[in-house]
């Protein structure tokens, strides 16, 4: 059935198909992607929680689905996942709020 929305959950599984129209760049992206999420200085679980937080910051429904599932699989629990989201919220909110210093500067400049 045709989904009457911009996002279709079934499209997530077709992500790999982007290589059909640009094979080399697509392949390089997926190789890089795979490398990024391997255990390194950070554990796989930590990387998955970062991805989950970023997914909320960029408000990507595909990524939220994928990294909720992946975080659970990597052993994260609900508390860790919600704390990760709050980190994203704090930075997004903080990023907006810190600009109010500019607003204050400008207001002071224009005011007697």
């Amino acid at each position: 059935m045709e989904k009457n929305t911009y996002y279709n959950p079934a499209d997530l599984a077709k992500f790999g198909n982007v290589t059909e129209w640009q094979a080399e760049m697509g392949r390089k992206f997926f190789d890089y992607y795979g490398e990024v999420f391997k255990e390194g200085a950070l554990t796989e679980r930590e990387k998955s929680l970062i991805a989950l937080a970023v997914a909320h910051a960029v408000q990507c429904p595909y990524c939220i689905d994928a990294y909720t599932s992946d975080s659970l699989q990597k052993g994260a629990d609900e508390a860790q996942m919600m704390e990760a989201v709050h980190v994203a919220v704090a930075i997004k909110g903080g990023a907006a709020l810190v600009h109010s210093v500019q607003m204050m500067n400008k207001a002071k400049e224009l005011s007697m």
């Binding site: 255990e39 554990t43 796989e44 679980r45 599932s69 659970l72 699989q73 990597k74 052993g75």
Partner: peptide, 14 residues
């Protein structure tokens, strides 16, 4: 839940 286990070594460490 309805997901597979993650890496055994990583989970053991956690």
């Amino acid at each position: 839940g309805a997901f597979l286990p993650g890496s055994q070594a990583g989970l053991e460490r956690d």
